[in-house]
């Protein structure tokens, strides 16, 4: 449960796992931000393939990292989003930011 960070060239990949809620999002945010602050990656990928549950706290997590990457002059991608999470993302309008893999919109 939590976040595993992998550096791949100019990319930073955050492999999220378990539940994302108000309780867990805080620690995920801190871990990602401190690594991104050090690496200053061109691309931050948030990988949702091992996320079992997400409420709107996850939307805050994505939005916040989007802003962070903007301030670092980089980009954010949100990848491997399961169906049950895609619904929350669509409701938030986050799909308008252009950070999602195309197929999320059809899930």
């Amino acid at each position: 449960m939590g976040v595993e960070l992998k550096k791949d060239g100019k990319e930073l990949i955050a492999l999220l796992s378990g539940d994302i809620d108000h309780h867990t999002a805080k620690q995920m945010r801190e871990e990602i931000d401190s690594q991104a602050g050090l690496d200053k990656p061109e691309l931050l990928k948030l990988d949702f393939q091992h996320v079992d549950f997400m409420d709107s706290s996850g939307i805050g997590l994505i939005m916040g990292r989007y802003k962070l990457m903007q301030s670092l002059g980089g980009r954010l991608r949100v990848i491997n989003v399961p169906n049950y999470i895609a619904r929350v993302i669509r409701l938030s309008g986050l799909d308008q930011l252009g950070v999602l893999e195309k197929d999320v919109e059809h899930k």
Binding site: S56, S57, I59, G60, L91, S92
Partner: peptide, 15 residues
């Protein structure tokens, strides 16, 4: 404030 998205009731309503 912080990173709260303000979507709590919208999610409840929609789900």
């Amino acid at each position: 404030g912080g990173e709260r998205a303000g979507l709590g009731f919208a999610v409840m309503e929609s789900f």
